[in-house]
């Protein structure tokens, strides 16, 4: 049995794997990756090997395998759909678009310098609109006319959004506009390497129904795996199995 651990910047995910996922847990990382790793270790005990990935991967004691989240995500997606060509992963601190071919990562691009291309963007804006993430997602789903949001940075976007609010624009259209702007950014960086089908959309961002809707609208056909936030942990485990 393999413990697949994905120590992300926001959440630490763990799965037990022996050809399929036997159990899974997720805990908040909260800037304390070591504590998060311990917490997962307490919940998932029945394993004999460990594969680690994510930004805290080097902190795992005595791992049998350490790989980056790019490789892990790719392997996880290929395990689910061996013919996948493009993977879009939206996480808390970064987003990535990975092209895979013949079972290998061909190219990848990451947006890691600017929060405006990450899940953090939505979280920040939801906060400033005094909505929970869930409420924000639901609002976005209702919209048929997303507002246009052009600012390229979270701080500027916040100002732009507040002015839309003061103009009396509908909250649902603003929320959908925010999500659209994030998707456009991801698609923009993805186009550097070309987004081709079949596409898998994963990472914590894939749990947001508004984001999924927008992705589908802009990119057409894409699949969301079950437990999209566990793909990295799964990929790590698969790599060791």
């Amino acid at each position: 049995m393999v413990l697949g651990l994905d120590i992300g910047s926001c959440y630490t995910k763990g799965i037990l794997f022996d050809g399929e996922i036997k159990s899974k847990v997720v805990v908040k990382t909260s800037f304390k990756p070591k504590l998060a790793i311990e917490a997962v270790n307490k919940l998932l005990t029945d394993y004999d090997r460990i594969a680690a990935t994510g930004y805290g991967r080097e902190l795992v004691i005595n791992p049998d395998l350490v790989i980056t989240e790019i490789t892990a995500t790719a392997r996880g997606c290929m395990f689910i759909n061996p013919s996948v060509r493009t993977i879009i992963d939206i996480g808390g601190q970064d987003s990535k678009v990975i092209k895979v071919l013949n079972g290998k990562v061909e190219r990848f691009v990451m947006n890691d310098r600017c929060a405006a291309g990450t899940g953090n963007f939505i979280e920040k804006i939801a906060q400033s609109l005094e909505l929970t993430l869930e409420e924000f997602g639901k609002q976005a789903l209702k919209s048929n006319h997303p507002e246009q949001i052009d600012s390229l940075c979270v701080v500027m976007a916040e100002t732009e959004i507040l002015s839309l609010v003061s103009e009396g624009k509908k909250l649902e259209d603003i929320a959908a506009g925010v999500i659209d702007s994030l998707v456009r950014r991801i698609v923009g960086i993805g186009s550097q390497i070309g987004i081709e089908e079949p596409i898998i959309f994963c990472g914590g961002g894939a749990l947001n129904p508004g984001l999924v809707k927008a992705m589908k609208r802009i990119l057409g056909n894409l699949t969301i795996p079950a437990n999209p936030q566990f793909i990295g942990a799964l990929g790590a485990a698969v790599s060791l199995s």
């Binding site: 930004y55 790989i67 980056t68 989240e69 790019i70 490789t71 601190q93 970064d94 290998k104 990562v105 061909e106 190219r107 990848f108 990451m110 890691d112 310098r113």
Partner: peptide, 23 residues
């Protein structure tokens, strides 16, 4: 990769290079 400002190399940049090596 963009060369960051002095003392600006982040864990994410390391990850990107490591992933490139894995590729």
């Amino acid at each position: 990769i963009d060369v960051p400002v002095p003392f600006g190399i982040t864990e994410q940049l390391r990850t990107r290079i490591a992933a490139f090596a894995e590729t």
